[in-house]
Design a protein around this nucleic acid. Structure first.
Lengths: 147, 147
DNA sequence: GCTCTTGTAACCATTCCAATTACAAGAGCG
DNA sequence: CGCTCTTGTAATTGGAATGGTTACAAGAGC
């Protein structure tokens, strides 16, 4: 089971908006860079807007990023496109008459919660500014490697 | 998107086998404690067997745990029931002619890999022995609370 | 041989997701 | 105003993963 493509696409969208200066980043154009459908871009942009990360206007191409990139962490983006809070799930109906079944949910929720927290803390440690800078470094490396 | 119930069920199965002494842990009985179907138990037991965590014999109830519980981490169990290695997925066809599209996969794979690693390291830090002991502590607490 | 059990295939229903079509509505320009 | 481009969103489709279930072959042991 995997985290949906939406997360990566959302990061891609914000990265594209950052380098867009003239409001030329239409959903169609972004879809071309991402390799998907314009409706997917608009749908995910809507999630980012509802999470307070973007401001969009119907009928107007492009979007404004609501916060400095250094204040948008990957965890913010992750949560914007994953309404489901729990990464792990525990079977819902263990038998309360069995010593294991009666306690397994509490035991697992604790350690599962900590594992999810570890993952989220790592995401929190990277901002969209880091991502955009890394993209530029990689682009420069390719260029100097002679392409 | 969530990690399948299988992971929690697998932990549950091993916990039940640990307290089973007389080979009475049939898949039917375990299914009763878990709140699922005997076939699910056998299917997940098979994954644990193929991962080298259990030894089962067709026709014989119960299973032997192949290693001391202190040497089975939750990461071992997690990997046994999740053949899919990558937690995060990146959209597969970004446009190589776009500076963002050309580099986003590498950028994301790096940070996504680290986030997954953080989660897995937390799972690695808990063994099945910890789980079983925690289950016993919780059972004792409930008992002394007067049930 | 009889019965219990496991291992596994096959099938179904549900859920989640990406892709797509369709269309209402806003923006801006002539 | 009318035309065109764009966004926002609903609806539908197809595919994949998952859990549940039935069915049955085969091993174990009395």
């Amino acid at each position: 089971m995997r985290i949906a493509n939406r997360f990566a696409i959302a990061v891609h969208i914000i990265s594209l908006l950052e380098t867009d200066e003239n409001g030329e980043a239409t959903s169609e154009w972004m879809a071309g860079s991402i390799g998907t459908n314009p409706v997917i871009v608009r749908r995910i942009s809507g999630m980012l807007r509802r999470a307070g990360l973007l401001r969009t206007r119907q009928g107007v191409a492009g979007a404004e990023i609501e916060r400095p990139l250094s204040e948008i962490t990957l965890l913010d983006v992750y949560r914007a496109v994953n309404e489901e809070g729990e990464l792990f799930s525990v079977h819902p109906r263990p038998n309360p008459l069995c010593e294991v079944g009666a306690n397994i949910q509490d035991t697992l929720e604790e350690v599962f919660g900590e594992a999810q927290e570890a993952m989220e803390n790592r995401l929190k440690g990277t901002t969209m500014l880091d991502v955009v800078q890394d993209l530029r470094v990689r682009a420069r490396e390719k260029e100097s490697a002679g392409v």
